[in-house]
């Protein structure tokens, strides 16, 4: 693995270390991102490079802005009046923020709106899985078909195949293949979370964002989910927020450490845990705060 960028800057009294993947490998490139909840600023000049077909973890103490950063990447914050992001989020080279006139893959992306439908095309390509499982109140089959139908008109046979492939890739098929018409609400928490992953990948996004997806799961369900994510790496890019440092070390290629709304250290995961360079991250991974 080669790194063409290495920089150390001084921000708010905390030294910053950035060992980023080469620009050509980046599918997402966040530059100088500020985020505001009303008047309260919660992200300060965040740079986050996300490498294609890799898993990038965001770690840091509660309230450091990990989830906020993740929620800017698919502009889900648009739903809430008063929340806004400034800076650049380059997705395949196009800025998705304030991108009124700039097309993303030919499809123009409108500015944020409270109605929330405008970033729909973007969200089809950048999926999201939440902290708590959020199965829709419908059958397992329909949970997956719901997203697919938003974009494509498919035959029953094609849909059957999409459902099977998605569930298989989310490592859930064997457990639910005989009960596809049962409600998704009847599954266990771990199964529900994998159903949400299957639902997310069924629309074939380029990126999947996961916000502490395993925090409500038991260890066995967690390892199943992790195995599924490792498999998915072949076809998509994953950004995961986690409080579980072992999880970050186990499955992630890159790790970003955040503190007080800033990205303090970013580097390949192996290095990140063996020899963190900033004092702040060293304190965090050794359990001295957070």
């Amino acid at each position: 693995m080669s790194f063409n960028e290495s920089q150390a800057t001084q921000a708010a009294g905390v030294s910053t270390v950035m060992v980023a993947p080469p620009a050509a490998e980046r599918v997402l490139d966040v530059r100088g991102l500020d985020f505001y909840y009303g008047k309260k600023q919660s992200l300060y000049g965040v740079d986050l490079p996300v490498a294609r077909n890799k898993i990038t973890a965001l770690i840091g103490p509660s309230g450091c802005g990990k989830s906020t950063l993740l929620r800017t990447l698919n502009r889900i914050y648009d739903l809430y009046p008063g929340q806004r992001a400034e800076g650049q989020i380059l997705f395949n080279g196009e800025n998705i923020l304030n991108a009124k006139d700039k097309p993303v893959d030919g499809a123009p992306v409108a500015t944020s709106s409270r109605i929330g439908g405008d970033a729909a095309k973007l969200r089809a390509r950048i999926g999201m899985v939440f902290q708590r499982p959020t199965p829709f109140p419908m059958s397992i089959y329909e949970n997956i078909a719901f997203g697919v139908r938003l974009y494509r008109k498919v035959t029953k046979a094609e849909m059957d195949e999409i459902v099977e492939v998605s569930l298989t890739r989310a490592a859930l098929w064997d457990e639910v293949k005989d009960q596809l018409d049962k409600s998704g609400l009847g599954l266990s928490g771990g199964q529900q979370q994998r159903l949400c992953v299957a639902r997310g990948i069924a629309v074939q996004p380029e990126i999947l964002l996961l916000d502490e997806p395993a925090s409500a799961l038991d260890p066995l369900s967690t390892s199943k989910l992790e195995a599924a994510l490792m498999e998915l790496k072949d076809s998509l890019t994953i950004v995961i927020v986690t409080h579980n440092l072992q999880q970050a070390a186990r499955i992630c290629d890159y790790t970003g450490f955040m503190l007080l709304g800033r990205l303090v250290e970013f580097r390949p995961s192996s290095d990140a845990f063996v020899k963190p360079e900033t004092e702040a991250m060293r304190d965090y991974v050794t359990g001295r705060y957070g």
């Binding site: 109605i115 929330g116 439908g117 729909a120 089809a124 829709f136 997203g147 629309v203």
Partner: peptide, 9 residues
């Protein structure tokens, strides 16, 4: 959010 995150209005 889960619905909106799939790209639904």
């Amino acid at each position: 959010e889960a619905g909106v995150a799939l790209g639904a209005g």
